[in-house]
Design a protein around this nucleic acid. Sequence first.
DNA 1: TGGGGTCCT
DNA 2: AGGACCC
Length: 762
Amino acid sequence: MERRWEEEQNDIGGEDPEEEDDVDWRMPSALGSPSIKAPSMLIQPSSSIAHRSETCLQSKLGHSRTIVHIDLDCFYAQVEMLRNPTLRDKPLGIQQKNIVVTTNYVARARGVSKLSYIKEALIKCPDLVLVSGEDLTNYRETSTKVTELLEQFCPLVERLGFDENFMDVTKLVESRLTSTDSKKLVHIGHSYESDAQIATQCQCGCRDRLTMGSHIAKEMRDTLKSKLGLTSCAGVATNKLLAKLVGAHHKPNDQTVLFSEWTDSFMQTFTKLRQIPGIGHSSGKKLKGMGIQNLEELRPTPVSTLADQFGKQQAETMLRLAHGVDDTPVVSKGPPQSLSDEDSFKKVGTLPAAKEMMTGLIKNLIKRLRSDGRIPYTMRLTVRKYVPGSWHRESRQTGISPNLFQKHDDASLLEQLLEVAVGLLQKLIDTNRPFHLTLINICFTNLRSKVTKGAIDSFFSKPAVKPKGLVTLQSQGMCDGKTGEMEVHSSKDDSIANELGDLPAANTEVVDKMHFGTVSGHKPREEERYVIKHKQKQPSSSGSVASFRTSVNVTGKVEAEGSKSFFKKLGSSPSNKSKSLSCRGELGTARKPESVATGLREQSSWTVDTARDAPEGEFDEDNSLLLEEAIRSSQNVALKQPSKRTLEESSSHDTTECSVDDSLAKRLKNDSDHETKPTTIKQNMEEIEIPPDIDRSVFNVLPSNMKEELIADWEREKRRREDECLLASSSQNLPKNKKSSSSAKKKQLPAVRNTITKYFKH
DNA sequence: TGGGGTCCT
DNA sequence: AGGACCC
């Protein structure tokens, strides 16, 4: 739950209003709260921020974004109090092993702080009610519901742990401001230092945006309370760091907005290194080793001084954070990248005991995987060996056969996974000799969706290029259709790779999707729509296998096939209907693991082998055929044009798209302005326009009613996209250079096939 | 000193 | 595989 074990010991003295989250609300005027400082002290003489003029420390986004951070109050305790309301008026602590990981506010009022030992907590509060919080199931499920509710407001929701979410509400704010008289607008909740004097208000329009942001934050919090019964805190600011920091100012169950002109004085209220999220234990120690004890000393430090120890990029990041500058985008991560379960204990010293532990963990994980719907391709075992004074962990991982999960015999699945786990354990310790473990963790990663009937859709696409490295290719889905993706890895083909020199490094591509956001209590408005940027984590492409990804639209079956909880439909909101679903396989090189029975091998990802002579039983036959067919028959795909800029530099505004056809490479290279001409074909005595990424030969053999349906789709989509372009280009408040650099790349919109897949529904 | 997660190297 | 970071 809570971070920072160390500084209770390390940071002696130096009272900190943010340190204990119960201080502020119980004793608002206590302990150096910023509000008791004289306003004059808070006004930044321009000279004092002179060191920030190092250009790398300045925000490239200015105040263009509006970010909301929502933090659930004492989350685990709230969940337990919902389950058992009689706990509400009792001092409650959530126990994990011999630690109280969080407490309700009654307990905090009695002096029980978070992350204290059970013993100490009971001394302070003998009637403390302890509830075990070792099983995270309820917390995880509630946490997912929270994120899903927030996704109804805006598509850009980023989770941080189980109890925090960031939202980029820039677009929502923008659309609301166009229909609101901003002169009458007053912020909701607190604002940082709003009643103090400050020379000039920022004139960029951020005040109105942040004010509107505070209204949205309030609606979000009200929704969490009414739908889930959860109270929360919110912070509203122009970046994630500031939103998070300012939200902690009024706790619990309240919210705070930071208007931009207060940023510097606000940041000055933070003095300790560890108060800045992003400066962790290790960096803190390193800095102190360099003689930099606190933020006041850090802020004026030249980048070059830090770069020696941290590298240039980390040095710049740290300094920016220290100044309250944070251009990192809010990134919706979608369903989790890994599922793990662990237990710690006094001692596990025999193989049977270890097996029993691991069996329990794997059983739980199988349940979670089944409910998630995806299949893991990698298993990792982590152990903590008993070494007094050390909490070091070691891990080993291996690929596992996806076939194990394709069938539904969980007993044999458990058996086989246990075998794999034992194999990994034996790499970590000699199980024939006495050992002493104090923790076992099992983690499934490399989660991929099962291939579904949706893959059929990719029959319409033909790959024109096989870029080197990983490129995300995806079409756009409309709000009334489920969207999924199938990833197909092709064998390496360098013919065009050189011309794709400015493709991103693997793992950094960004996928755009269209979302139509609604706000509860408001009827959906045409303007309230967004382009969502989804950063998709790719598995490292192994060996000589390059890969690309095509997009498929999947019908309602999406929910059944992947990551169920995150794709769950909430009410009738359209905003979370278009979620991505990844299926991945690799084609080409006929590599396969040696150890099939246990799936034990060193490779971290599996190769789906589609060679005709591949041994049977290696992998799901249907899937591979589907994949192979998809590869062969797809040709043109929509491509998210990667940006040379780093992710940090890119904002949520400047998404660029282009469709890939035969001239892809040329266009990437030349950045030329020509549009892909829709292909015209002769059908039923009339000229039909079909999108450039549609395989004409496939289209031709479709039944005529399906053809008509598709044509109607394309027409609709064309019109919609024209609107979209207008909206997007007319409403950006980005720095000029930014905007032009993004519009220099072609707005080429890929075709959308949104209703066709209904033909493949069961 | 929990039981989770993320990303980067 | 480990290490940093977050909760």
